[in-house]
Amino acid sequence: MSRLANVKKSIARSQLWTAFFRHGYPDTDRNRVLVIMSNVLLHLHPVKVRKSGVKMKYTWCAGGLSFFLFLLETITGLLLMFYYRPTIEYAYVDIIDLREQVPLGIMRELHRWGAHAMVIAVWVHMFRVFMTGSYKPPREFNWNVGVILLVLTLLLSFTGYLLPWDQLAIWAITVGSNMARATPFLGHEGPGAALLRVGDVSLVHIGDDVRFALLGGRFVGAGTLLRFYVLHCVAIPLIAGFGMAIHFWRVRKDGGISGPL
C-alpha cells in the first residue's frame, strides 16, 4: 500500500473527519442510504425515488426551483437589510447608497430579478402539477397548501415593491391597494358598507376600513412603509417557510412525486 493511501486512510478515520462525514462517498448502496438519512437538508428527499418522477420532463424542476429562489431571496434580502432603513427619511437614500457606494453590488438586482423569477417559477410549478393531474387524491390537501404558498409569494412580491420608496413603488402600491376601498362591507366605498351604521354614525369610513388597516393611514405613507417592511421581512417569510415545511412533508406522506399507478 502506498504512503498516500495510508495518509488518506488515517485522515478518514480521524475523529475530526468522522465527526463531520459519517460515511464514505455515496457510491455504495449503504452510503447512498446514509447520505440522505444523516444530512438534514438532503433528508427532505426520500432515499429512493420513482424513476419517472426524477425526470426533468416530468417535474420541470419547477417546485425545487421555487424553493431555491425562496432561499436566494432570503439570503440576498438579509444582506439588503444591513443597508436599508424603513423610514421616509432614509429608505430612498439608502437604496441610492446601496447602488452607488457598495462595490460590485448586485444584491439588489439579484433580489429583485430573483423575486420576479420566483413568481414565474411558482406559476410554472402549479401549471405542471395541474397538467399531470397531481392534485387528485391523495394530494388534494397539498394542492391547497400550494395555493396558499402562491398567494404568499405574490404578497411577498407586492410588499417588497414598496420598499425602495420611489415613484414606481408608491404608485404601484397605491393602485394595488385602492381596490381594498371597494371591499364589500369592509371598505368605505364597498357595496354594503353604507348599511353598517349605528344611528347617524357609519361604522366603516375612510379612517377605519380595511384599506386603512392595510396602509396604516389614509394614503401610502410612513405607516405603510413600516407595515410593509415588517410584513415583507418577517411575517410573510415566516408563514411561507412554515407552509413550505408542511408542503414538502406532505409530498413525502402522499407517496412521493406522483406517477401512474
Binding site: P26, H45, V49, R50, K51, L261
Partner: peptide, 9 residues
C-alpha cells in the same frame, strides 16, 4: 418507469 426506483443520490 413509475414502478422502478432510483437512488436520490
Amino acid at each position: 418507469d413509475s414502478g422502478k426506483k432510483v437512488w436520490a443520490w
